[in-house]
């Protein structure tokens, strides 16, 4: 009975700490907005490089293959009815609205989310987080805000790259396997897709970026101060990020549907 009570208290405390974490984050973002010079620009740049440029290859590859696979699957089915050209619609819409942002989110979770959790977890083990606190520096401002800013910048851009790669992957299948002329496929793609579709998909990435960063960092701060604790934190960050990513995606899609987009 006492153990159950203890567990409940522990969970309750964790939630309270999470709320505190958000409060601290809000304060620190305000500080950085008021004093942009105090923002950790170099760290931000480092994470832009790590999560952005260095993720570009894998994003392009995976999204390209997604387009490839979609076109292949859709083509198999739709060519029975002679509607090969509609593969362009299928690939375009599913990539821009859904798969592009989601795949980028998944890749970022694997690359950045786990790295954030591991990094902050390790810093906690090494008492670097304590050192920051006793220096009077908010660990959230020092460790979370640069990551958050970097991810907010980088993820939408990666989604654009992923969308483009996916469309080109679809095009490749369209002109080879489905024997469509490049101009017809590409023309159809440009015709059916609207700036709105692209923008709405890319906007999702801002939410994904915030989710991945905050979950990764939170897990890092909550890591048990031992080597295994850091590993568990990284794994936990990836698992809960992926889950919440999909749930958030669902809600964003519902929201888009409700405003008629």
């Amino acid at each position: 009975m006492d153990r159950i009570g203890g567990e409940i208290r522990k969970i309750l405390r964790q939630w309270m700490q999470l709320v505190e974490f958000f409060g601290q984050l809000g304060l620190d973002i305000r500080t950085d907005l008021r004093h942009p010079g105090r923002h950790r620009w170099r760290e931000t740049l480092y994470y832009i490089d790590l999560c952005g440029r260095r993720s570009l290859g894998i994003v392009v590859l995976i999204c390209g293959l997604m387009g490839f696979i979609l076109a292949l699957q859709g083509g198999l089915l739709i060519r029975e009815y002679g509607g090969e050209l509609f593969v362009a619609d299928l690939v375009g819409f599913s990539l821009l609205k859904e798969l592009g942002p989601l795949m980028v989110g998944m890749i970022a979770t694997g690359r950045a989310g786990s790295a954030f959790a591991a990094e902050i977890g390790t810093m906690k083990v090494n008492e670097e987080v304590s050192a920051l606190t006793t220096m009077g520096i908010s660990p959230v401002r020092f460790l979370v805000v640069p990551k958050l800013l970097a991810m907010l910048i980088v993820l939408p851009l990666l989604a654009v790259a992923g969308d483009m790669a996916g469309l080109l992957g679809g095009l490749l299948i369209g002109v080879t396997y489905l024997d469509l002329p490049v101009s017809a496929y590409w023309g159809r793609t440009l015709q059916v897709l609207s700036p709105q579709v692209l923008t709405l998909g890319v906007l999702k990435c801002f939410v994904f970026a915030a989710l991945i960063t905050l979950i990764g960092c939170w897990r890092g701060f909550q890591a048990d101060p031992d080597a295994q604790g850091v590993g568990r934190a990284a794994t936990g960050a990836v698992v809960s990020s992926i889950l919440l990513l999909v749930v958030a995606d669902l809600f964003i899609t519902l929201f888009y549907a409700s405003i008629g987009c």
């Binding site: 760290e43 480092y46 810093m123 090494n126 008492e127 304590s130 050192a131 606190t133 006793t134 220096m135």
Partner: peptide
């Protein structure tokens, strides 16, 4: 924070920032 400014702490492993 004002108080923290007035003392320094040296941690076991140094707790230097690796980056």
């Amino acid at each position: 924070h004002r108080l923290m400014r007035r003392f320094g702490v040296t941690y076991q492993g140094g707790a230097l920032f690796g980056s």
